[in-house]
Lab assay of single mutants.
Amino acid sequence: MQYKLVINGKTLKGETTTKAVDAETAEKAFKQYANDNGVDGVWTYDDATKTFTVTE
């Protein structure tokens, strides 16, 4: 399945996608991506759209 990440950071904004077997695996990949880019915020997930959002 394909999952999307929407980033609403202080210095980084945008979107990225990943393919993963489940939401938990996608979340780990997205959190690593956010961490690598210095984004630390509040996470939400919408199962209907398979979209994670992180807001600083």
Rank of each mutant, 00 (worst) to 15 (best):
D36H: 09
T49G: 06
T53M: 08
T49D: 05
E56N: 04
K50I: 03
F30K: 00
K10L: 15
Q32A: 11
E15G: 05
F52E: 00
D47R: 07
T51V: 08
V21A: 12
Q2M: 15
G38W: 05
K19I: 15
G14A: 14
N35G: 12
D47S: 11
D40C: 07
V54K: 01
I7V: 11
K10A: 15
G38K: 10
L5G: 01
T49W: 04
D40F: 12
K19M: 15
N37Q: 12
A23M: 14
K28M: 13
D40A: 14
G41K: 01
T49R: 07
K28S: 10
A23Y: 13
L12F: 14
Y3D: 01
T11W: 15
D40V: 13
G14T: 15
Q2A: 09
E27V: 07
K4P: 01
A20Q: 05
K31P: 00
K28N: 11
K31G: 03
V39M: 06
E24R: 10
T17Q: 10
V39E: 02
L5R: 00
M1C: 08
V6M: 06
D22Y: 04
Q32K: 14
A48S: 12
M1I: 14
V39H: 05
T11M: 09
D22K: 04
L5I: 03
L5E: 01
Y45I: 02
K10E: 13
T17W: 15
K13W: 07
W43K: 00
V6K: 08
V42Y: 13
K13I: 12
Y45G: 00
G38F: 08
T25N: 09
E56K: 03
E56R: 03
K13T: 14
T55I: 08
D22I: 03
Q2G: 06
D47E: 15
K13G: 07
A34N: 04
T18F: 12
V39G: 02
G38I: 04
T11V: 12
L12K: 07
A23Q: 11
W43C: 02
Y45T: 01
Q2P: 10
Q32F: 05
I7H: 03
E24D: 12
I7G: 01
V6T: 06
V42C: 08
N8K: 10
T49A: 08
T55E: 09
F30T: 00
A34Q: 02
V42F: 11
A26N: 00
A29C: 08
G9A: 10
K4M: 08
Q2S: 12
L5D: 01
F30Q: 00
D36P: 02
L5P: 01
T16Q: 11
T44G: 06
F30C: 02
Q2W: 14
N35C: 07
D46P: 01
F52D: 00
T55S: 07
D47H: 12
T53G: 03
D40E: 13
K10W: 14
Y45C: 01
G38C: 07
T55A: 05
V42H: 12
W43M: 04
G38V: 04
G9C: 10
E24F: 14
N35T: 13
A34I: 10
T25H: 14
T11D: 15
T11Y: 14
K10F: 13
Q2T: 15
M1L: 12
A48K: 12
A20P: 02
K10S: 13
G38L: 08
T17H: 11
K50C: 04
E56L: 06
D40H: 15
Y33C: 03
T49P: 02
K10H: 14
A34H: 02
A48C: 07
T51C: 05
N35H: 15
T53D: 03
Q32G: 05
D47Q: 10
M1F: 14
A29N: 13
V39W: 08
A29R: 10
T17S: 11
Q32P: 02
N8T: 08
K31H: 10
G9I: 13
N37P: 01
K10Q: 15
K28P: 02
Y3I: 02
E24A: 15
E56I: 09
D40I: 14
K10T: 14
G14E: 15
V39Q: 03
D22V: 03
T18Q: 07
L12P: 03
G14C: 11
D40W: 12
V42M: 11
L5N: 01
V54I: 12
T18K: 06
E27T: 04
T55K: 05
Q32N: 10
T17D: 06
T25V: 08
T11E: 09
E56Y: 07
K4T: 15
D40Y: 12
T53L: 06
T11G: 07
A26E: 00
W43D: 00
K19F: 15
A20L: 03
K19N: 13
E15M: 05
E24K: 11
T51Y: 03
E56S: 05
Y33N: 02
E15D: 05
T44S: 13
I7Y: 08
